[in-house]
Design a protein around this nucleic acid. Structure first.
Lengths: 367, 367
DNA sequence: GTCGGTGCTGGTAGCGCTGTCAACGTTCCT
DNA sequence: AGGAACGTTGACAGCGCTACCAGCACCGAC
């Protein structure tokens, strides 16, 4: 392989123990439960380990202890910004403790998820983070039978496998539509892509809110199974507009689509919000910076990942949370794109950068 | 933990061997090197394994064989879109074979990188993917001494540790500036954030191109160590404009900044490209969809990740690539934002969505 | 003074798999 | 026909660590 072959710089636990003048078992305990040692031995082992640069062999530990210190994470996409925030939270929370993250991408396929789950479970993970609540029956059964704590993330539902953290996409969508009603909008379109279960529930929320107001029409809904993108937002909006020229607002299932809609409006010289209001979903960073600034539903993605991993680790360590289901909520961040029609839609020419920055500094979404 | 405790559904290799009527070693070989078995035994072991639902115990395998089937990946950011594309490539390439990805986030700190490297190396990974060429001396030494193939990604340099795949950020930046020269621009500003080594090399490329044309001035450069964002792009551009009102183009170190600049121009009613041309870097999806569409330097991020992982796995399996350093190149994707001044800057009102889509379908950047 | 409890420590015995090497049967060559 | 060469198989001996349980010292309680 062209690479040097080291003798595998093996410093074993036994060597540490020898240098410290204790038995290997005592040394082992030092790494797993230092409080169980007398102070004298603890310091002896500690300095011996440091002196030798000892690093435990995880494979041996896993084999002997019949469990790993791996947290399996199943997410449906690596591309979606939403998941990169969640992941960052998970990785941040797992830092500094002994657990390591094993990530797998289900690509929005519950069959793939089932396969990966089987793989994970076979290695006896310390814990599992899975996305959503729509598993196959088989997956569900495996999760129920799993001998480790499990957190379902991204949304909440009535029947948690174990723990659960997220928010109601249905309620969030209803709130977004209610906001548009408040702004005097009536003919509100829905634009959605990928149509995974969570987007579907956003659609359901939109439909129910529209029906409650007796404003629902099927032609107001444009969706596709295609993965989301900014460009796609523009294309779907074009479709929507062709079907319903009297449109006065669009609720987009995510922010990329919303940005695409905004660009398409600009292309067609449709005033935002004067002619059409736009509301996105997730409140990605650019929403506060667009012109006009774009209203969105803020979701606490980083916090979700971080809390999920923290809860999971606590549970692994035997400290189960008092509250296994956590609703992180959401927050409508009202910006220019959904202001009432007669308000001025464009900010003063200069100093607008400051305006955008001010939007970013709005009260954070931890509701 | 409130979870059922299974008896740990252990089907050992020995049981498979017994059912198949062979020795455990033969069964073991079946999973590692099936060609070494006679066809009869191979099928016997195969069906026995399937019948019992055998899943190998990776910990035991790692312990006995003194090596893992883990590929360590060190990247500086989980937030940055650029890395999510690279990661996706890496994960895609690692699918279907027996290697699993272990990801760690250095957060743009080479000290953190060194720490993580030490951690990884202690577990004897099968291979390593590290970002960039700017390691600490200590890290470099560890990499040199490592007993596994290593791929450095994201850029190429003169002194690979082992394998290397990327492109020259310096050349790419020079090409971007040359493109702006071609379009008749002279007072070209540079906007950069985070200023990690690769952004720094883009700046170096910009500076050298500007100096070659005797057009360089320090005040044309605005940078910050702050992490990048769309909003930040607007703010940095505002700074730049205050320093140099005669500006006629901006080269942005990434696309988020470029989008921020575009929005800021819109806010200030500065025509793009009539007054100011904008060029971004990476060619994220939204660049083709913005209004006007935004010129960018296309980089082959997904391919980079995928190829890196593929090369690495091949090398692990003993098939080292003939060419250990791979330059994936880049490509200037010329769009409206950098058209010459006198051309019409806005497309026809309708059908522009199609235009944007056409841009997306341009010949791919495999130079 | 003996007893049981508590805190700490150590010995024994694997966890499930694979590296090494020897041995076997078969084929091919001379 | 004999032997070497090859392909295939199996026995043995751990990999480095920890679970389990026993043992020791020391304590206070009866």
């Amino acid at each position: 392989m062209g690479r040097k072959r080291t003798k595998s710089g093996k410093i074993r636990l036994a060597e540490v123990a020898e240098l410290a003048g204790v038995s290997p078992i005592t040394a082992s305990r030092f790494f797993r439960n230092p409080e169980a040692l007398s102070l004298a031995k603890r310091t002896r082992v500690e300095s011996a380990a440091k002196e030798l640069g000892y690093v435990p062999n995880l494979a041996a530990r896993a084999l002997a202890s019949q469990r790993t210190e791996v947290i399996g994470v199943l997410i449906p996409s690596l591309t979606n910004n939403v998941f990169s925030d969640v992941l960052r939270g998970i990785y941040d929370a797992s830092e500094g403790n002994r657990y390591s993250i094993q990530l797998s991408n289900t690509r929005y396929s519950i069959l793939q998820e089932e396969k990966l789950l089987r793989l994970f479970l076979a290695q006896k993970p310390a814990g599992l983070i899975v996305t959503g609540i729509d598993q196959t029956a088989e997956s569900r059964a495996m999760l129920e039978a799993a001998d480790c704590p499990i957190v379902q993330i991204m949304e909440i539902g009535p029947d948690p496998v174990d723990m659960m953290i997220g928010f109601s996409h249905y309620d969030a969508a209803r709130a977004a539509v209610a906001h548009l009603f408040d702004q005097g909008r009536r003919r509100i379109g829905f634009v959605g892509a990928r149509m995974d279960p969570r987007v579907q529930r956003r659609l359901d929320g939109y439909v129910s809110a529209m029906k409650d107001a007796a404003l629902f029409e099927q032609r107001l809904v444009v969706t596709t199974a295609t993965p989301t993108s900014v460009t796609l937002g523009g294309a779907l909006f074009a479709d929507l507009l062709a079907r319903e020229p009297g449109l006065d607002a669009v609720f987009c299932a995510n922010d990329d689509l919303a940005l695409g809609v905004l660009f398409e409006c600009r292309r067609r010289e449709i005033g935002v919000p004067d002619q059409i209001a736009i509301v996105g979903f997730n409140d990605l960073e650019f929403m506060a910076s667009a012109v006009p600034t774009l209203t969105s539903v803020r979701t606490n993605r980083y916090e979700m990942g971080k809390t999920a991993a923290t809860m999971l680790i606590e549970a692994i360590d035997g400290r189960r949370p008092e509250q296994p289901v956590l609703d992180l909520g959401f927050k409508i961040i009202e910006r220019q794109s959904s202001m009432p029609r007669h308000s001025e839609s464009r900010p003063a020419a200069s100093g607008a950068g400051a305006t955008a920055n001010k939007m970013v500094a709005l009260p954070s979404g931890h509701d």
